[in-house]
């Protein structure tokens, strides 16, 4: 199997939802300096589901945070849709996150004081806008959450909580959804549900999703897997399967010794 497939033709024609060029991000200074991203350039096509993989400490979260405007880069530029985000102030970044980006974290996604439905509508509420009821209804139906809407997060299982988080991320039809190990805390069945939903939202709704994961079978749900090691992109795999992902990981683990364990 070739290490890097040529990009699929239909994906190259689509405009990139996220475009990062020459990202450099270093923490600390002098001796203790850790370079988390070394000259990373990557595009995420609109309407595609991309997984980011790599050993612990390889810079996956850092990359995602920089792409989402949560962290600032030392050099390079990031574009979300039509917006160049490097250099934006806190206010503009906050608006951008609110209107153009959806987030799914590993845990602590939901506000315990709000019901599931209120949590789903949270971004719209924060924006003081009215969510599109037809769209929300469709998302809720797809996630099979209709009979859980009035429940508080404490009354939901971990899988249900993550499904609510997914619904919330999609509620504003963002340009891109970033998910950092969304299934990291879930059992196989619950992760399956969440991953199938993410897949469907790409297929049915044309959503763009970027997901960080450690799990090869999770990555197999994606259209493409980008591999990071020591702050650099080392592989770019299209149409992955669990086996091809595992093979790829073995491949570069052999080539690049597990350096950059900064933790």
């Amino acid at each position: 199997m070739p290490l890097a497939n040529p990009p699929a033709p239909q994906l190259t024609r689509t405009r990139a939802a996220v475009d990062a060029t020459n990202l450099l991000r270093a923490y600390g200074s002098g001796e203790a300096q850790v370079v988390a991203l070394r000259n990373v350039s990557v595009q995420f096509a609109s309407g595609a589901f991309t997984a980011i993989m790599g050993p612990s400490g390889s810079g996956k979260s850092t990359l995602m945070h920089c792409l989402a405007g949560l962290d600032t880069v030392d050099r390079g530029s990031v574009r979300i849709g039509d917006t160049e985000i490097t250099g934006l102030n806190d206010k503009a970044l906050t608006r951008l996150r609110r209107d153009k980006i959806g987030f799914i974290f590993q845990q602590f996604n939901l506000l315990p004081t709000l019901t599931a439905e209120e949590n789903i509508l949270l971004p719209a509420s924060i924006a003081g806008a009215k969510a599109d009821p037809a769209w929300i209804g469709r998302v809720i139906a797809t996630l099979d959450l209709a009979d859980r809407l009035t429940h508080k997060p404490t009354e939901l299982s971990g899988g249900q909580q993550q499904r609510v988080a997914c619904a919330r991320a999609l509620a504003t039809r963002p340009e891109v959804v970033f998910a950092d190990e969304p299934t990291g805390n879930l059992d196989t069945r619950s992760s399956g549900e969440v991953l199938r939903f993410l897949r469907r939202s790409v297929d049915d709704f044309g959503q763009t999703i970027v997901m960080v994961t450690h799990d090869p079978s999770a990555a197999a749900h994606a259209d493409r897997v980008v591999f990071l090691a020591d702050g650099q992109i080392v592989e770019d795999l299209h149409r992955p399967t669990a086996d091809s992902v595992i093979d790829t990981m073995r491949g570069f683990e052999n080539r690049v010794p597990l350096a950059g364990e900064g933790r």
């Binding site: 989402a68 949560l70 806190d90 206010k91 906050t94 608006r95 996150r97 609110r98 209107d99 980006i101 959806g102 987030f103 974290f105 602590f108 996604n109 506000l111 315990p112 949270l122 971004p123 924060i126 924006a127 919330r168």
Partner: peptide, 16 residues
């Protein structure tokens, strides 16, 4: 703190 971080991440402004 976590909750506040999440809220800020998904677009809650400082003012809010």
């Amino acid at each position: 703190t976590r909750e506040l971080g999440m809220l800020r991440a998904i677009g809650m402004t400082r003012g809010q």
